[in-house]
């Protein structure tokens, strides 16, 4: 195996594109190194992107934020302005692993590892975040929800990698929340999860919403029916019931060591409802 730590995006894409064998981007390494030790992964080349300029920056852009691909969870958690704008995204990132994992883990890594249970992904999908991708043919932007295509698979082409993720501006009376279910209080992978991002009008009526679910299908789901259940309501009980029902209906989970189909269907609805209430109260506080 070879290790390279290029200082420019161009060099990184060149290394990735030219490698004849398995080449992997190394961000925080908290998935990669585990897979190398226990998962039988044996890459020929690791391209460490942390030394590339700008990769570790969170930069304001058009009222939103552009988060470099190598920004760790701990660094995200310390960014007050980002937390104020997208609290659901930051809380999702902060749920990843332990303090030690937070010191290294990145959102882009979480996304590109393409686990359906990845915590930051539903929150990013609800936020309608846009990934910026560098590749041999230059840069392109792609909605986060189109990156993972199946467990462990992404839509990135050979030589491509994510350089940053953009979180757009939003009106004052809008906010988001993310909740996951785990059997302990920490150190577990989500059994199921829900992200809700919403905007309220001055009367508290929901005018816009995005609802996403994790760990209940092969990739994170963006559930339009669930969003529709909220839009036009004040998140009264019947709207929340409809939200929950839409989420349960959208789930296509499996039975595995972490949970049953039945459990995931039921609890996804519970989480979506609770997350919606949290997002609502946060939005209220911002207005």
């Amino acid at each position: 195996m070879q290790y390279a730590a290029p200082e420019t995006t161009a060099e990184a894409t060149r290394l990735l594109a030219d490698s004849p064998g398995t080449a992997r981007v190394l961000a925080g390494g908290t998935d990669l190194l585990v897979q190398m030790k226990f998962g039988g992964l044996a890459p020929d080349l690791l391209v460490d992107i942390k030394n590339i300029k700008g990769m570790r920056d969170v930069t304001p852009e058009d009222g939103g934020f552009r988060v470099g691909a190598a920004v760790s969870g701990a660094e995200m958690g310390e960014h007050k302005a980002m937390r104020a704008l997208w609290p659901g995204v930051v809380e999702a990132v902060e749920l990843i692993g332990s303090t030690q994992v937070q010191g290294r883990a990145t959102m882009a890594g979480n996304l590109c590892n393409a686990s359906p249970a990845a915590d930051s992904v539903p929150a990013m999908v609800a936020a309608n975040a846009i990934a910026r991708i560098a590749g041999p043919d230059g840069e392109r932007d792609c909605p986060v929800q189109d990156i993972p295509t199946a467990p462990g698979k992404t839509s990135l082409q050979k030589g491509e990698f994510i350089t940053s993720i953009f979180f757009p501006a939003r009106p004052d009376n809008a906010s988001d929340a993310y909740l996951r279910f785990i059997p302990r209080t920490e150190m577990d992978i989500a059994v199921c999860s829900a992200g809700v991002s919403l905007t309220l009008d001055t009367n508290g009526t929901c005018t816009d919403a995005r609802v996403s679910l994790g760990a209940v299908a092969a990739t994170v789901l963006l559930v339009q029916d669930a969003a529709n259940a909220l839009i036009g309501s004040k998140l009264d009980d019947s709207a929340l019931e409809a939200l929950g029902a839409a989420c349960s209906a959208a789930c296509n989970p499996i039975d595995d060591k972490r949970g049953t189909i039945e459990f995931r269907r039921d609890v996804t609805a519970v989480l979506a409802k609770r997350a919606a209430k949290i997002a609502q109260s946060r939005a209220g506080e911002r207005s």
């Binding site: 226990f38 059997p183 302990r184 209080t185 920490e186 150190m187 577990d188 992978i189 060591k257 972490r258």
Partner: peptide, 16 residues
Amino acid sequence: LQNAGFLDYRIPVASD
């Protein structure tokens, strides 16, 4: 054995 690691063999952590 499906859970031969501390991630899925869940011993209590301090916050539990």
